[in-house]
Amino acid sequence: MRTITVPLTLINLQDDGFHLLVEIVVFGKKHFVVLDTGASRSVFDMTLIKNNISELEYSEETQATTLFTTSSTIQAIIPKIKMGRLIISSYETVALDLESVNQAYDQMGHPVIAGIIGSDILLKYQAIINYKKLKLFLYSE
């Protein structure tokens, strides 16, 4: 099993808590995503998905539990997600509208996010978060 080390960015939410961000590459471009151990699964921004995937499946039922809420979702398959040296192929995702989250991040001077990495990916790759070193350790076969 090989260890993949990915740097993390800790952002302060106006002294009301913190979020960990991790940089990923999706659709050939770098994006930040929130690392959310409380999210049942990973989700991506609806606009990002609509702009990059032509075949989409719409649903009115929310199928992801995260720190962000939504009333409708889109299902799609992302061909490739790269997180450090980890490559995830054909990831079945749910897309949410993260516009209000990104507006709040922008007002606080933080980068916009393309999604949320949740427990599905974190569990599969046996994630270990080291806050002191601001590193995410993933394990891949």
Rank of each mutant, 00 (worst) to 15 (best):
M1K: 12
M1T: 14
I4G: 03
V6H: 06
V6A: 06
L8S: 01
T9Q: 12
N12L: 01
L13Q: 04
Q14W: 06
D15K: 14
D16Y: 11
F18N: 10
F18M: 11
H19A: 06
E23W: 00
I24R: 02
I24S: 00
V25E: 13
V25W: 00
V25L: 05
F27N: 03
G28H: 04
K29L: 13
K30H: 13
K30S: 14
H31K: 08
H31C: 08
F32C: 09
V33K: 00
V34E: 07
G38T: 09
S40G: 15
S42G: 10
T47H: 11
I49R: 02
I49S: 02
I49E: 02
K50V: 04
N51I: 03
N51P: 01
N51V: 00
N52P: 08
N52M: 12
I53W: 01
E55I: 10
E55M: 08
L56N: 02
L56K: 04
L56D: 02
Y58G: 02
E61D: 11
T62Y: 13
Q63A: 08
A64W: 08
T65A: 13
T66L: 07
F68W: 13
S72Y: 15
S72V: 08
T73G: 05
T73D: 10
I74Q: 02
Q75E: 09
I78C: 10
K80E: 15
K80C: 11
K80V: 07
K82E: 14
M83V: 12
M83F: 00
M83G: 09
I88M: 00
S89C: 07
S90W: 06
Y91A: 08
Y91P: 09
T93W: 00
A95P: 00
D97Y: 00
S100I: 08
S100P: 02
N102H: 06
Q103R: 15
H110K: 09
P111V: 11
A114G: 15
G115M: 06
I117K: 09
I117C: 12
K124R: 15
Y125G: 04
Q126L: 11
A127N: 01
I128H: 11
I128A: 14
Y131Q: 06
K133P: 01
L134Q: 12
K135G: 01
L136E: 05
L138R: 05
L138M: 01
Y139E: 10
E141Q: 08
